[in-house]
Design a protein around this nucleic acid. Structure first.
Lengths: 240, 240
DNA sequence: CCGACCAAATTGGTCTGACCATATTGGCCT
DNA sequence: AGGCCAATATGGTCAGACCAATTTGGTCGG
């Protein structure tokens, strides 16, 4: 299924992220890599192009050099998360901070710019979360739809692009954690009700406070899910 | 200087962004495009790869289709800004909202996590802005260094990557505007002093308020610069 | 002994041409 | 008219070659 260049790129990305090549170090030549992977140079070349696009390497006539992660593109995040069995908790928390902040910004802007109809639509999507006895799947779906609605109602294109990019890299790497089992549905119910009310009254400070609280909630439940997964993994290791 | 594939990519990007191809419409085949541009298929292929990377097209066996801008990568922003003589004011404002929000988040996190030494370093960089009689160049540099310091002191990698990416696309497209001539240096002086004090006392609400005000300031001065450039352009048109 | 300079080897960049697997198309048959 | 199938067009991959720029290593002169 995956093209040869994808395998090569994946291997090189892994090598770079696991620090097998130091920053500023020259990568092997395309011809060498082609020989090592028993592949066409074109395939290696495509792989190198991907590295460059991700921002992990800088290709120049004379050789390709490894760049620091901090100079990379936002697309490295996904690769960083996928590096180990479990995603790095610190990185996960950083991502959550950013995503939740973006959500907060979107909500603030929505409050300021959205029409009454648009506000009403968002409020509709908060209703399902009133229920504290939703099953995990339905609860996850309801949360997702509410957040997506807030993001899309906002007409800020850069904000949307960032949020989507970040989420797309984030989601597949935390899906194994079954976060929905650790969310506090009672707290979410209160959140939904307060949000509904604050939206109706277009109460900016209230909305800000609500999303600050939400951020803490989400970060907490994610940390719990990560810890649970870590325990589960170490159990598997001892009883194979 | 620019490779042939870059010219082809640029032409295709322009065509897509100016809506000469509709969303979901099939692009001409690589062989057709090669003939049209009098180029090698490999060159066209590289150009198409770039389109796919930016997220403006989706390449599949059977043909390439145009995607909606909202599904693109964050890298479209630069191309969107560069599309006309002057960048789209609405888009510019949206970008400023996001950048300023990210800065605010970084500042909040810095307040929470940074060491006293790091805080002190940032405060140092606020000092130069006390002066209201800095020349434009020095003022721009001082602002830039302060903001960059806040961004880097924060250890949030995703936040840094997003901010840098956004800024790199933004800066070259607004550099023609000479924004520094429209900033209110007196207001900036007050901002710097308040920030210095708020950082020293680690006063979170104060920092939040300061950056909210800063955002409005920046957005205003950018709008003024845009308007000035617009007038300047229309004058040139009447007196060539 | 060191630095500047130059030629050779290496490297990425580009082009040509071909073949393959798959998707699309258009005609044919029912 | 609808379904089926072959012909065709398309993107995906590969091989081999040449070019321009960089890097490298040696040599010469100070």
């Amino acid at each position: 299924m995956a093209g040869l260049h994808d395998q090569i790129a994946g291997s090189l990305i892994q090598d770079i992220l696991s620090a097998r090549y130091r920053v500023d170090e020259r990568l092997p030549s395309e011809r060498d890599l082609a020989a090592r992977f028993d592949a066409n140079r074109g395939a290696v070349r495509e792989a190198m192009k991907k590295l460059e696009q991700i921002g992990l390497a800088e290709i120049q006539p004379g050789g390709a050099r490894v760049k620091d992660t901090s100079e990379a593109s936002l697309d490295v995040i996904g690769h960083l998360l996928a590096q180990d069995n479990l995603p790095d908790p610190k990185l996960v928390d950083q991502i959550l901070v950013v995503i939740n902040s973006l959500l907060k910004i979107a909500a603030e802007q929505t409050l300021e710019l959205a029409s009454d109809e648009e506000i009403a639509q968002i409020r509709e999507l908060a209703r399902p979360l009133y229920a504290e006895n939703l099953n995990d799947e339905a609860h996850t779906l309801a949360r997702f739809e509410l957040f997506q609605s807030i993001m899309l109602t906002n007409k800020n294109l850069p904000l949307q692009l960032i949020a989507r990019t970040l989420f797309e890299q984030f989601a597949p790497n935390v899906s194994v954690l079954n976060v929905s089992t650790t969310v506090d549905k009672a707290a979410y119910s209160q959140f939904a009700q307060e949000l509904d009310s604050a939206l109706q009254q277009r109460d900016l400070p209230a909305v800000q406070a609500i999303f600050t609280t939400l951020s803490d909630m989400n970060r907490e439940s994610m940390m719990h899910a990560l810890e649970a997964a870590r325990h589960s993994l170490s159990q598997e290791a001892t009883t194979p």
